[in-house]
Amino acid sequence: MNIFRLAGDMTHLASVLVLLLKIHTIKSCAGISLKTQELYALVFATRYLDLFTDYISLYNTLMKLIFLVSSFSIVWYIRHHKIVRRSYDKDQDTFRHYFLVLPCFLLALVINEKFTVKEIMWTFSLYLEAVAILPQLVLLQRTRNIDNLTGQYVFLLGAYRSLYILNWIYRYFTEPHYVHWITWISGLVQTLLYADFFYYYFQSWKNNVKLELPA
């Protein structure tokens, strides 16, 4: 475990907690894409299949449980909570996220490190995570108004993956045979998707103006 990875995991945890906090306290999910949350729940469900078979460390198991429980609770809140669901704007959140699932699955069948069910599901979860933010970014472009918590959520989510890239660079230079092209490329693609959001986030922060994404 290196500092980049720990910082990455903590940032990822913070992003999920910020979101849960927002939904739980103000009982609203305005500006949040349910599609992205469903994709993230699927990412964790397909990535942590080894939760009960491979014990890595208490930290690893605990974090997996937290991510699974939090991502599914967020989906539950937005879909079923009697107050929160009213603030979900399904007419705006129209990204056809099923069109993301199938290509990622087919790609995982073709490009993977080993042709086993577990490995293919793990690879699928990597590709899906890379594109899972798209419905949320599209929704932000549409609604134009980004409230602070949503902006922080997306920012933390992008920061976590950027820190993971530093972690991969660090591990590449410190651990022999640590080469995972699939992880690195999908992680890089994911981070690049956030690049323009980061740009506008920093602009708004620097000029101390409300975060606006160009249409």
């Binding site: 990875r5 995991d9 990822h12 080894d50 491979d54 890595i56 460390s57 690893n60 974090m63 997996k64 991510f67 490190e113 080993k114 793990w122 993971y164 972690n167 992880t183």
Partner: peptide
């Protein structure tokens, strides 16, 4: 068969 290293990253 060399067991491939478990996925230790989240």
């Amino acid at each position: 068969v060399k067991e491939d290293p478990p996925k230790d990253e989240l």
